[in-house]
């Protein structure tokens, strides 16, 4: 279901034109799909919130909302995308009182590129340092780099890179222009790659090319 359709279904519910109550079949379907998606619901909630207890609260709230609106989901094949949109919307709503943190973004990120740091064209046929680094990165390295992002950047990276939402969908959920999502995503990815580079330097996975690299802690 597209974001607009979700909004209109909410409006239908608020207007008193309630859909039919869920059936036993609905309950079985819902329980099965939640069981299948529990790992991903919790994983995404954990990346959004950075806190296990908050992630559990977020998943629980999203599941309750999803059940309440299940009769409005016309195409059950869309359940997965639909419930992850509910999860993201719930997180953004929870953050509304901290909206400044979600909307605020600095402007000084300079387009850091891991590829530019690692790529060595003359090694092309017998070595590939950039792909080697990707294979050496642990999930905890990626998680730490993602966790270091400010909330406003992490929200768009999780929404686009982990959930596969379009820029338009994220803009609608955050209530910002598409251009803001685009620029924030670019800065977020730059920061993420810079954090991974610094971690790789600290772990001795790569060697810095510049004095600045080698003095980073």
């Amino acid at each position: 279901m597209e974001h607009g359709a979700f909004q209109s279904s909410l409006q239908r519910s608020r207007s008193g034109c309630d859909p039919p109550a869920p059936t036993t079949e609905d309950r079985s379907f819902f329980a099965l799909r939640i069981g299948e998606l529990a790992d991903r619901l919790y994983g995404v909630a954990l990346r959004f919130t950075r806190n296990g207890a908050a992630a559990e609260d977020l998943v629980s709230e999203a599941v309750v909302k999803a059940w309440a609106h299940l009769p409005q989901l016309e195409d059950r094949a869309c359940f997965e995308k639909w419930i992850f949109r509910i999860l993201a919307n719930t997180f953004f709503s929870q953050c509304r009182h901290e909206r400044e943190e979600l909307l605020d973004a600095d402007e000084d990120e300079d387009g850091f590129s891991l590829f530019d740091r690692l790529h060595q064209p003359f090694l092309l046929w017998w070595g590939n340092p950039e792909q080697e680094l990707i294979h050496k990165l642990l999930c905890e390295d990626l998680d730490r780099a993602l966790g270091e992002l400010p909330d406003c950047y992490r929200a768009v990276v999780v929404s686009v890179d982990l959930l596969g939402h379009s820029y338009t969908e994220v803009a609608a959920m955050l209530g910002v222009p598409v251009g803001t999502v685009r620029s924030r995503l670019n800065r977020a990815r730059s920061r993420l790659q810079r954090a991974l580079w610094q971690q790789a330097l600290a772990a001795g996975l790569v060697q810095g090319k510049s004095a600045e690299d080698n003095t980073h802690d």
Partner: peptide
């Protein structure tokens, strides 16, 4: 990065 989208939920959840 996409591998981060999955994490085993605790028994409490």
């Amino acid at each position: 990065m996409r591998s981060l989208a999955s994490a085993p939920p605790p028994d409490s959840l």
